[in-house]
Design a protein around this nucleic acid. Structure first.
Lengths: 240, 240
DNA sequence: ATGCAGCATTTACATGCGTTAATGCACGCT
DNA sequence: AGCGTGCATTAACGCATGTAAATGCTGCAT
Protein backbone atom coordinates (compact mmCIF):
# COMPACT_ATOMS: atom_id res chain seq x y z
CA UNK A 1 0.00 0.00 0.00
CA UNK A 2 1.29 3.32 -0.93
CA UNK A 3 0.97 4.63 2.56
CA UNK A 4 1.01 1.39 4.46
CA UNK A 5 3.54 1.00 7.23
CA UNK A 6 4.46 -2.48 6.15
CA UNK A 7 5.15 -1.37 2.66
CA UNK A 8 8.41 0.43 3.26
CA UNK A 9 11.86 -0.86 3.91
CA UNK A 10 12.68 -4.34 4.88
CA UNK A 11 10.74 -5.26 7.96
CA UNK A 12 11.30 -8.45 9.88
CA UNK A 13 8.60 -11.01 10.39
CA UNK A 14 8.38 -9.83 13.99
CA UNK A 15 7.92 -6.23 12.93
CA UNK A 16 5.18 -7.14 10.50
CA UNK A 17 3.41 -9.11 13.16
CA UNK A 18 3.70 -6.23 15.56
CA UNK A 19 2.06 -3.92 13.03
CA UNK A 20 -0.69 -6.42 12.31
CA UNK A 21 -1.41 -6.79 15.99
CA UNK A 22 -1.63 -3.07 16.56
CA UNK A 23 -3.84 -2.63 13.52
CA UNK A 24 -6.26 -5.30 14.67
CA UNK A 25 -6.52 -4.04 18.20
CA UNK A 26 -9.21 -1.46 17.57
CA UNK A 27 -11.18 -1.64 14.36
CA UNK A 28 -14.31 0.34 13.61
CA UNK A 29 -16.71 -0.10 10.74
CA UNK A 30 -18.06 3.22 9.53
CA UNK A 31 -20.91 3.99 7.13
CA UNK A 32 -20.41 5.93 3.93
CA UNK A 33 -20.17 9.73 4.09
CA UNK A 34 -19.32 9.72 7.76
CA UNK A 35 -17.03 12.20 9.50
CA UNK A 36 -14.07 10.55 11.19
CA UNK A 37 -12.38 13.68 12.51
CA UNK A 38 -13.27 17.30 12.08
CA UNK A 39 -11.15 20.40 11.74
CA UNK A 40 -10.52 21.73 15.22
CA UNK A 41 -10.64 18.33 16.92
CA UNK A 42 -7.73 17.18 18.98
CA UNK A 43 -5.91 14.35 17.28
CA UNK A 44 -5.51 11.47 19.70
CA UNK A 45 -5.35 8.41 17.52
CA UNK A 46 -3.79 7.44 14.25
CA UNK A 47 -6.20 6.15 11.60
CA UNK A 48 -5.47 3.51 9.02
CA UNK A 49 -7.98 2.62 6.33
CA UNK A 50 -8.30 -1.14 6.08
CA UNK A 51 -11.03 -1.21 3.51
CA UNK A 52 -13.05 1.28 1.49
CA UNK A 53 -12.38 4.88 0.45
CA UNK A 54 -12.07 7.99 2.58
CA UNK A 55 -10.99 11.58 2.02
CA UNK A 56 -9.18 14.46 3.63
CA UNK A 57 -10.78 17.85 3.05
CA UNK A 58 -10.77 21.45 4.12
CA UNK A 59 -13.65 23.83 4.28
CA UNK A 60 -13.53 27.59 3.98
CA UNK A 61 -15.53 29.80 6.32
CA UNK A 62 -18.23 30.25 3.68
CA UNK A 63 -18.62 26.56 2.97
CA UNK A 64 -16.50 26.06 -0.11
CA UNK A 65 -14.87 22.68 0.15
CA UNK A 66 -11.61 21.31 -1.16
CA UNK A 67 -10.80 17.63 -1.10
CA UNK A 68 -7.09 17.28 -0.40
CA UNK A 69 -6.50 13.60 -0.93
CA UNK A 70 -8.24 10.27 -1.12
CA UNK A 71 -7.42 7.33 1.11
CA UNK A 72 -7.72 3.71 0.08
CA UNK A 73 -6.96 0.43 1.79
CA UNK A 74 -3.70 0.55 3.69
CA UNK A 75 -3.40 4.31 3.84
CA UNK A 76 -2.40 5.96 7.07
CA UNK A 77 -4.47 9.11 7.42
CA UNK A 78 -2.46 11.13 9.94
CA UNK A 79 1.28 10.55 10.14
CA UNK A 80 1.70 13.13 12.90
CA UNK A 81 2.24 10.75 15.73
CA UNK A 82 4.60 12.94 17.66
CA UNK A 83 2.91 16.26 17.51
CA UNK A 84 -0.19 16.76 19.61
CA UNK A 85 -2.08 19.08 17.38
CA UNK A 86 -5.60 20.22 16.70
CA UNK A 87 -6.60 19.13 13.25
CA UNK A 88 -6.37 21.74 10.51
CA UNK A 89 -8.56 19.65 8.21
CA UNK A 90 -11.26 17.00 8.31
CA UNK A 91 -11.41 13.35 7.39
CA UNK A 92 -14.52 11.50 6.31
CA UNK A 93 -15.48 8.29 4.61
CA UNK A 94 -16.72 8.04 1.05
CA UNK A 95 -17.78 4.40 1.01
CA UNK A 96 -18.33 2.30 4.12
CA UNK A 97 -14.89 1.94 5.67
CA UNK A 98 -13.17 -0.51 7.95
CA UNK A 99 -10.85 1.68 9.99
CA UNK A 100 -8.07 0.83 12.43
CA UNK A 101 -7.54 3.29 15.27
CA UNK A 102 -4.15 3.31 16.95
CA UNK A 103 -3.78 5.36 20.12
CA UNK A 104 -0.74 7.56 19.75
CA UNK A 105 1.04 6.08 22.79
CA UNK A 106 0.76 2.61 21.26
CA UNK A 107 2.15 3.94 18.04
CA UNK A 108 5.08 5.60 19.77
CA UNK A 109 5.83 2.43 21.63
CA UNK A 110 5.86 0.49 18.40
CA UNK A 111 8.26 3.01 16.91
CA UNK A 112 10.59 2.93 19.86
CA UNK A 113 10.66 -0.84 19.57
CA UNK A 114 11.70 -0.69 15.94
CA UNK A 115 13.81 1.84 14.05
CA UNK A 116 12.58 0.25 10.84
CA UNK A 117 9.03 1.16 11.66
CA UNK A 118 10.12 4.68 12.55
CA UNK A 119 11.74 4.88 9.15
CA UNK A 120 8.56 3.62 7.54
CA UNK A 121 6.66 6.44 9.18
CA UNK A 122 9.06 8.97 7.70
CA UNK A 123 8.48 7.38 4.33
CA UNK A 124 4.77 7.77 4.66
CA UNK A 125 5.16 11.43 5.60
CA UNK A 126 7.34 11.95 2.57
CA UNK A 127 4.85 10.40 0.18
CA UNK A 128 1.93 12.21 1.78
CA UNK A 129 3.46 15.61 1.28
CA UNK A 130 4.68 14.70 -2.21
CA UNK A 131 1.12 13.82 -3.19
CA UNK A 132 -0.10 17.09 -1.77
CA UNK A 133 2.46 18.98 -3.84
CA UNK A 134 1.38 17.19 -6.97
CA UNK A 135 -2.24 18.14 -6.28
CA UNK A 136 -1.25 21.77 -5.85
CA UNK A 137 0.57 21.59 -9.16
CA UNK A 138 -2.34 19.86 -10.82
CA UNK A 139 -4.91 22.40 -9.78
CA UNK A 140 -2.58 25.30 -10.41
CA UNK A 141 -1.32 24.32 -13.85
CA UNK A 142 -3.28 21.55 -15.50
CA UNK A 143 -6.44 22.08 -17.54
CA UNK A 144 -9.68 20.47 -16.43
CA UNK A 145 -9.11 17.57 -18.80
CA UNK A 146 -5.57 17.01 -17.59
CA UNK A 147 -6.53 17.34 -13.94
CA UNK A 148 -9.19 14.69 -14.09
CA UNK A 149 -6.96 12.45 -16.16
CA UNK A 150 -4.21 12.92 -13.61
CA UNK A 151 -6.50 12.00 -10.75
CA UNK A 152 -7.53 8.83 -12.58
CA UNK A 153 -3.89 7.94 -13.15
CA UNK A 154 -2.88 8.53 -9.56
CA UNK A 155 -5.70 6.56 -8.05
CA UNK A 156 -5.32 3.72 -10.53
CA UNK A 157 -1.61 3.39 -9.86
CA UNK A 158 -2.12 3.55 -6.11
CA UNK A 159 -4.85 0.95 -6.26
CA UNK A 160 -2.72 -1.26 -8.44
CA UNK A 161 0.05 -1.08 -5.87
CA UNK A 162 -2.23 -2.70 -3.32
CA UNK A 163 -3.73 -5.17 -5.69
CA UNK A 164 -7.08 -3.48 -6.05
CA UNK A 165 -7.17 -3.37 -9.84
CA UNK A 166 -8.37 -6.03 -12.25
CA UNK A 167 -6.57 -5.55 -15.54
CA UNK A 168 -7.42 -2.08 -16.76
CA UNK A 169 -10.34 -1.78 -14.34
CA UNK A 170 -10.89 -0.84 -10.75
CA UNK A 171 -13.65 0.08 -8.36
CA UNK A 172 -14.04 3.82 -8.30
CA UNK A 173 -16.70 5.03 -5.89
CA UNK A 174 -16.26 8.77 -6.40
CA UNK A 175 -19.21 10.75 -7.69
CA UNK A 176 -18.66 13.49 -10.22
CA UNK A 177 -19.19 15.95 -7.37
CA UNK A 178 -16.36 14.34 -5.44
CA UNK A 179 -14.12 14.65 -8.47
CA UNK A 180 -15.18 18.28 -8.79
CA UNK A 181 -14.28 19.07 -5.19
CA UNK A 182 -10.94 17.36 -5.57
CA UNK A 183 -9.98 19.13 -8.77
CA UNK A 184 -11.34 22.59 -8.06
CA UNK A 185 -13.91 22.34 -10.84
CA UNK A 186 -17.70 22.30 -10.88
CA UNK A 187 -19.66 19.13 -11.11
CA UNK A 188 -21.13 20.23 -14.43
CA UNK A 189 -17.75 20.80 -15.96
CA UNK A 190 -16.48 17.48 -14.65
CA UNK A 191 -19.38 15.85 -16.42
CA UNK A 192 -18.62 17.64 -19.70
CA UNK A 193 -14.96 16.74 -19.45
CA UNK A 194 -15.46 13.08 -18.63
CA UNK A 195 -17.76 12.78 -21.62
CA UNK A 196 -14.98 14.18 -23.74
CA UNK A 197 -12.57 11.65 -22.28
CA UNK A 198 -15.03 8.89 -23.11
CA UNK A 199 -15.31 10.12 -26.68
CA UNK A 200 -11.52 10.08 -26.85
CA UNK A 201 -11.53 6.44 -25.76
CA UNK A 202 -9.43 7.14 -22.70
CA UNK A 203 -11.91 6.37 -19.96
CA UNK A 204 -14.91 4.24 -19.26
CA UNK A 205 -16.67 5.15 -16.05
CA UNK A 206 -20.08 4.00 -14.93
CA UNK A 207 -21.65 2.25 -12.00
CA UNK A 208 -18.63 3.10 -9.87
CA UNK A 209 -16.33 1.13 -12.13
CA UNK A 210 -13.40 2.80 -13.85
CA UNK A 211 -11.74 1.31 -16.90
CA UNK A 212 -8.63 2.86 -18.43
CA UNK A 213 -8.22 1.12 -21.80
CA UNK A 214 -4.98 2.92 -22.65
CA UNK A 215 -3.21 3.89 -19.47
CA UNK A 216 -0.05 4.97 -21.27
CA UNK A 217 -1.92 7.44 -23.42
CA UNK A 218 -3.88 8.69 -20.44
CA UNK A 219 -0.68 9.23 -18.49
CA UNK A 220 0.84 11.14 -21.32
CA UNK A 221 -2.25 13.32 -21.75
CA UNK A 222 -2.28 13.97 -17.99
CA UNK A 223 1.45 14.73 -17.87
CA UNK A 224 1.53 12.04 -15.22
CA UNK A 225 4.82 10.76 -13.92
CA UNK A 226 4.59 8.32 -11.04
CA UNK A 227 7.88 9.40 -9.52
CA UNK A 228 6.22 11.56 -6.87
CA UNK A 229 4.58 8.44 -5.44
CA UNK A 230 8.04 7.03 -4.70
CA UNK A 231 6.86 3.54 -5.41
CA UNK A 232 10.29 2.07 -5.82
CA UNK A 233 11.50 0.87 -2.43
CA UNK A 234 8.03 -0.40 -1.78
CA UNK A 235 7.86 -3.89 -0.48
CA UNK A 236 5.33 -6.45 -1.52
CA UNK A 237 1.79 -5.14 -1.13
CA UNK A 238 0.30 -6.46 2.07
CA UNK A 239 -3.15 -5.72 3.33
CA UNK A 240 -4.45 -6.11 6.83
CA UNK B 1 10.77 31.12 12.50
CA UNK B 2 7.88 29.18 11.30
CA UNK B 3 10.02 26.31 10.17
CA UNK B 4 13.06 26.86 12.27
CA UNK B 5 14.29 23.99 14.39
CA UNK B 6 14.88 26.19 17.39
CA UNK B 7 11.40 27.57 17.25
CA UNK B 8 9.56 24.54 18.52
CA UNK B 9 9.24 23.10 21.96
CA UNK B 10 11.40 24.04 24.84
CA UNK B 11 14.97 23.42 23.93
CA UNK B 12 17.78 23.64 26.41
CA UNK B 13 20.62 26.08 26.03
CA UNK B 14 22.83 23.16 25.04
CA UNK B 15 20.39 22.08 22.33
CA UNK B 16 20.18 25.56 20.90
CA UNK B 17 23.92 25.79 20.83
CA UNK B 18 24.14 22.45 19.10
CA UNK B 19 21.78 23.67 16.39
CA UNK B 20 23.66 26.92 15.96
CA UNK B 21 26.93 25.06 15.60
CA UNK B 22 25.56 22.71 12.99
CA UNK B 23 23.98 25.60 11.09
CA UNK B 24 27.21 27.54 10.98
CA UNK B 25 29.34 24.63 9.90
CA UNK B 26 28.69 24.96 6.19
CA UNK B 27 27.19 28.16 4.89
CA UNK B 28 26.91 29.12 1.24
CA UNK B 29 25.99 32.48 -0.22
CA UNK B 30 23.97 32.10 -3.39
CA UNK B 31 22.98 34.67 -6.01
CA UNK B 32 19.36 35.46 -6.83
CA UNK B 33 17.46 33.12 -9.15
CA UNK B 34 19.89 30.28 -8.59
CA UNK B 35 18.97 26.58 -8.53
CA UNK B 36 19.83 24.89 -5.25
CA UNK B 37 18.52 21.43 -6.06
CA UNK B 38 16.74 20.16 -9.10
CA UNK B 39 14.02 17.59 -9.53
CA UNK B 40 15.70 14.23 -10.00
CA UNK B 41 18.75 15.07 -7.90
CA UNK B 42 19.68 12.90 -4.99
CA UNK B 43 19.07 14.66 -1.73
CA UNK B 44 22.19 14.46 0.44
CA UNK B 45 22.02 17.54 2.62
CA UNK B 46 19.38 19.45 4.49
CA UNK B 47 19.07 23.12 3.58
CA UNK B 48 18.16 25.93 5.93
CA UNK B 49 17.62 29.45 4.67
CA UNK B 50 19.49 31.88 6.91
CA UNK B 51 18.73 34.98 4.95
CA UNK B 52 16.80 35.94 1.82
CA UNK B 53 13.91 34.29 0.00
CA UNK B 54 13.79 30.97 -1.86
CA UNK B 55 11.11 28.80 -3.40
CA UNK B 56 10.08 25.23 -3.97
CA UNK B 57 8.61 24.54 -7.40
CA UNK B 58 7.58 21.83 -9.77
CA UNK B 59 7.71 21.84 -13.51
CA UNK B 60 5.52 19.89 -15.91
CA UNK B 61 7.01 18.16 -18.91
CA UNK B 62 5.92 21.01 -21.19
CA UNK B 63 7.43 23.72 -19.02
CA UNK B 64 4.46 24.95 -17.02
CA UNK B 65 5.71 25.82 -13.57
CA UNK B 66 4.03 25.79 -10.20
CA UNK B 67 5.61 27.40 -7.18
CA UNK B 68 4.75 25.25 -4.16
CA UNK B 69 5.98 27.35 -1.29
CA UNK B 70 8.26 30.21 -0.41
CA UNK B 71 11.08 29.96 2.10
CA UNK B 72 12.26 32.83 4.26
CA UNK B 73 14.90 33.15 6.97
CA UNK B 74 14.90 30.18 9.31
CA UNK B 75 12.97 27.83 7.05
CA UNK B 76 14.15 24.29 6.66
CA UNK B 77 13.69 23.34 3.02
CA UNK B 78 13.73 19.55 3.16
CA UNK B 79 12.58 17.84 6.34
CA UNK B 80 13.19 14.38 4.93
CA UNK B 81 16.29 13.58 6.84
CA UNK B 82 15.64 9.89 7.13
CA UNK B 83 14.57 9.00 3.68
CA UNK B 84 17.19 8.90 0.98
CA UNK B 85 15.13 10.01 -1.94
CA UNK B 86 15.53 11.59 -5.33
CA UNK B 87 13.88 15.00 -5.29
CA UNK B 88 10.41 15.22 -6.80
CA UNK B 89 10.65 19.00 -7.03
CA UNK B 90 13.21 21.79 -7.32
CA UNK B 91 14.42 24.50 -5.00
CA UNK B 92 15.87 27.80 -6.10
CA UNK B 93 16.62 31.20 -4.67
CA UNK B 94 14.59 34.32 -5.36
CA UNK B 95 16.86 36.90 -3.77
CA UNK B 96 20.48 36.31 -2.88
CA UNK B 97 20.39 33.75 -0.07
CA UNK B 98 22.63 32.76 2.78
CA UNK B 99 22.07 29.02 3.05
CA UNK B 100 23.17 26.49 5.64
CA UNK B 101 23.85 22.98 4.38
CA UNK B 102 23.67 20.16 6.89
CA UNK B 103 24.86 16.73 5.75
CA UNK B 104 22.18 14.22 6.62
CA UNK B 105 24.47 12.16 8.87
CA UNK B 106 25.18 15.25 10.97
CA UNK B 107 21.51 15.92 11.21
CA UNK B 108 20.73 12.38 12.29
CA UNK B 109 23.42 12.55 14.91
CA UNK B 110 21.95 15.74 16.27
CA UNK B 111 18.55 14.11 16.45
CA UNK B 112 19.83 11.05 18.21
CA UNK B 113 21.48 13.31 20.74
CA UNK B 114 18.25 15.10 21.49
CA UNK B 115 14.67 13.86 21.46
CA UNK B 116 13.55 17.48 21.62
CA UNK B 117 15.22 18.20 18.33
CA UNK B 118 13.64 15.10 16.85
CA UNK B 119 10.30 16.39 17.99
CA UNK B 120 11.06 19.77 16.45
CA UNK B 121 11.69 18.06 13.14
CA UNK B 122 8.29 16.40 13.29
CA UNK B 123 6.80 19.81 13.97
CA UNK B 124 8.39 21.24 10.90
CA UNK B 125 7.10 18.39 8.79
CA UNK B 126 3.62 18.98 10.15
CA UNK B 127 3.66 22.67 9.33
CA UNK B 128 5.18 22.07 5.91
CA UNK B 129 2.43 19.74 4.84
CA UNK B 130 -0.24 21.93 6.44
CA UNK B 131 0.95 24.86 4.36
CA UNK B 132 0.88 22.72 1.27
CA UNK B 133 -2.72 21.73 2.00
CA UNK B 134 -3.70 25.34 2.44
CA UNK B 135 -2.15 26.18 -0.93
CA UNK B 136 -4.08 23.37 -2.60
CA UNK B 137 -7.24 24.74 -1.03
CA UNK B 138 -6.39 28.25 -2.04
CA UNK B 139 -5.80 27.46 -5.67
CA UNK B 140 -8.74 25.09 -5.82
CA UNK B 141 -11.35 27.25 -4.14
CA UNK B 142 -10.37 30.88 -3.74
CA UNK B 143 -10.86 33.53 -6.42
CA UNK B 144 -7.83 35.35 -7.83
CA UNK B 145 -8.38 38.23 -5.44
CA UNK B 146 -8.68 35.95 -2.43
CA UNK B 147 -5.71 33.86 -3.46
CA UNK B 148 -3.35 36.78 -3.72
CA UNK B 149 -4.70 38.26 -0.51
CA UNK B 150 -4.18 34.92 1.19
CA UNK B 151 -0.60 34.71 0.00
CA UNK B 152 0.08 38.19 1.35
CA UNK B 153 -1.44 37.22 4.70
CA UNK B 154 0.53 34.02 4.98
CA UNK B 155 3.86 35.56 4.12
CA UNK B 156 3.27 38.57 6.33
CA UNK B 157 2.40 36.43 9.33
CA UNK B 158 5.34 34.14 8.74
CA UNK B 159 7.70 37.07 8.40
CA UNK B 160 6.29 38.66 11.53
CA UNK B 161 6.98 35.46 13.42
CA UNK B 162 10.67 35.83 12.71
CA UNK B 163 10.77 39.53 13.27
CA UNK B 164 11.05 40.52 9.63
CA UNK B 165 8.18 42.99 9.58
CA UNK B 166 8.22 46.67 10.49
CA UNK B 167 4.77 47.67 11.62
CA UNK B 168 2.43 46.97 8.71
CA UNK B 169 5.32 46.68 6.26
CA UNK B 170 7.79 44.06 5.16
CA UNK B 171 10.27 43.38 2.41
CA UNK B 172 8.58 41.46 -0.34
CA UNK B 173 10.88 40.55 -3.21
CA UNK B 174 8.41 38.58 -5.33
CA UNK B 175 7.69 39.80 -8.83
CA UNK B 176 4.16 39.67 -10.16
CA UNK B 177 5.27 36.71 -12.25
CA UNK B 178 6.35 34.89 -9.09
CA UNK B 179 2.98 35.58 -7.54
CA UNK B 180 1.34 34.31 -10.72
CA UNK B 181 3.26 31.06 -10.66
CA UNK B 182 2.45 30.56 -7.01
CA UNK B 183 -1.27 31.19 -7.37
CA UNK B 184 -1.91 29.49 -10.68
CA UNK B 185 -2.81 32.77 -12.40
CA UNK B 186 -1.25 34.73 -15.22
CA UNK B 187 1.03 37.64 -14.62
CA UNK B 188 -1.41 39.97 -16.34
CA UNK B 189 -4.26 38.94 -14.13
CA UNK B 190 -2.12 39.28 -11.02
CA UNK B 191 -1.39 42.84 -12.09
CA UNK B 192 -5.09 43.62 -12.60
CA UNK B 193 -5.98 42.10 -9.27
CA UNK B 194 -3.29 43.85 -7.25
CA UNK B 195 -4.41 47.14 -8.71
CA UNK B 196 -7.88 46.35 -7.49
CA UNK B 197 -6.53 45.58 -4.04
CA UNK B 198 -4.70 48.90 -4.05
CA UNK B 199 -7.90 50.73 -4.98
CA UNK B 200 -9.59 48.93 -2.10
CA UNK B 201 -6.92 50.23 0.25
CA UNK B 202 -5.86 46.75 1.28
CA UNK B 203 -2.37 46.64 -0.14
CA UNK B 204 0.50 48.88 -1.01
CA UNK B 205 3.18 47.14 -3.01
CA UNK B 206 6.05 48.76 -4.83
CA UNK B 207 9.79 48.63 -4.91
CA UNK B 208 9.71 45.20 -3.28
CA UNK B 209 8.04 46.62 -0.20
CA UNK B 210 4.66 45.35 0.94
CA UNK B 211 2.42 47.35 3.25
CA UNK B 212 -0.83 45.93 4.60
CA UNK B 213 -2.63 48.89 6.15
CA UNK B 214 -5.56 46.83 7.40
CA UNK B 215 -4.41 43.29 8.03
CA UNK B 216 -7.64 42.27 9.73
CA UNK B 217 -9.73 43.27 6.78
CA UNK B 218 -7.30 41.61 4.39
CA UNK B 219 -7.44 38.39 6.38
CA UNK B 220 -11.19 38.42 6.34
CA UNK B 221 -11.32 39.06 2.59
CA UNK B 222 -8.81 36.24 2.07
CA UNK B 223 -10.68 33.85 4.37
CA UNK B 224 -7.35 33.56 6.12
CA UNK B 225 -7.12 31.75 9.41
CA UNK B 226 -3.62 31.33 10.78
CA UNK B 227 -4.40 28.07 12.51
CA UNK B 228 -2.81 25.96 9.77
CA UNK B 229 0.53 27.58 10.55
CA UNK B 230 0.36 26.12 14.06
CA UNK B 231 2.10 29.15 15.49
CA UNK B 232 1.09 28.52 19.05
CA UNK B 233 3.78 26.37 20.69
CA UNK B 234 6.34 28.45 18.91
CA UNK B 235 9.13 29.69 21.05
CA UNK B 236 10.70 33.08 20.79
CA UNK B 237 11.82 33.85 17.28
CA UNK B 238 15.51 33.23 16.95
CA UNK B 239 17.57 33.68 13.85
CA UNK B 240 20.96 32.29 13.11
C1' DA C 1 24.07 60.46 -20.82
C1' DT C 2 22.79 56.23 -23.04
C1' DG C 3 20.95 51.95 -23.46
C1' DC C 4 19.72 47.71 -22.14
C1' DA C 5 17.07 44.53 -19.15
C1' DG C 6 13.71 43.31 -16.13
C1' DC C 7 9.23 44.39 -14.40
C1' DA C 8 4.83 46.61 -14.37
C1' DT C 9 1.06 48.33 -16.86
C1' DT C 10 -2.39 48.66 -20.44
C1' DT C 11 -5.35 47.25 -24.19
C1' DA C 12 -8.20 44.26 -27.09
C1' DC C 13 -9.94 40.18 -27.59
C1' DA C 14 -10.79 35.05 -26.75
C1' DT C 15 -12.31 31.12 -24.06
C1' DG C 16 -12.55 27.74 -20.45
C1' DC C 17 -15.07 27.11 -16.92
C1' DG C 18 -18.86 28.65 -13.74
C1' DT C 19 -23.91 29.32 -12.81
C1' DT C 20 -28.51 28.03 -12.79
C1' DA C 21 -31.86 25.12 -13.50
C1' DA C 22 -34.36 21.69 -15.82
C1' DT C 23 -34.53 16.79 -17.16
C1' DG C 24 -33.28 12.08 -17.14
C1' DC C 25 -31.96 7.75 -15.20
C1' DA C 26 -31.20 3.95 -11.96
C1' DC C 27 -31.65 1.87 -7.79
C1' DG C 28 -33.74 0.82 -3.37
C1' DC C 29 -37.63 1.03 -0.42
C1' DT C 30 -42.42 0.10 0.64
C1' DA D 1 -45.73 -1.32 -9.45
C1' DG D 2 -44.83 3.30 -7.79
C1' DC D 3 -42.20 6.62 -5.62
C1' DG D 4 -38.31 9.02 -3.74
C1' DT D 5 -33.59 10.08 -3.79
C1' DG D 6 -29.03 10.53 -5.48
C1' DC D 7 -26.43 11.17 -9.49
C1' DA D 8 -25.63 12.12 -14.30
C1' DT D 9 -26.78 14.75 -18.21
C1' DT D 10 -28.13 18.72 -20.98
C1' DA D 11 -28.83 23.52 -22.11
C1' DA D 12 -28.33 28.58 -22.18
C1' DC D 13 -25.84 32.09 -20.78
C1' DG D 14 -22.27 34.89 -18.19
C1' DC D 15 -17.93 36.03 -16.41
C1' DA D 16 -13.38 35.48 -14.50
C1' DT D 17 -9.36 34.68 -16.21
C1' DG D 18 -6.24 33.71 -20.19
C1' DT D 19 -3.62 35.32 -24.50
C1' DA D 20 -0.87 38.31 -27.13
C1' DA D 21 1.48 42.12 -27.74
C1' DA D 22 2.62 46.80 -27.23
C1' DT D 23 4.17 50.53 -24.04
C1' DG D 24 6.13 52.44 -19.96
C1' DC D 25 9.05 52.74 -16.10
C1' DT D 26 13.25 52.25 -13.27
C1' DG D 27 17.69 51.03 -12.08
C1' DC D 28 22.04 49.56 -13.40
C1' DA D 29 26.04 48.90 -16.28
C1' DT D 30 29.11 51.16 -19.43
Amino acid sequence: MSLHLSAFGKLSEAERNLIETVLKKRVRVLPARYDVVREGDESRVVHVVLDGWAQRYKQLADGRRQILTFFVAGDLCDPNVFVPRTMDHSISTITPVRLAEIPKPDFREMIQASPNIAQALWWISLVTVAIQREWTTSIGQRTAYERIAHLFCEMFVRLRTVGLTQGAACDFPLTQSDIAEATGLTQVHVNRTIQEMRRDGLVELRHRQLVLPDLDRLMSVALFSASYLHLDHIDKPMLA
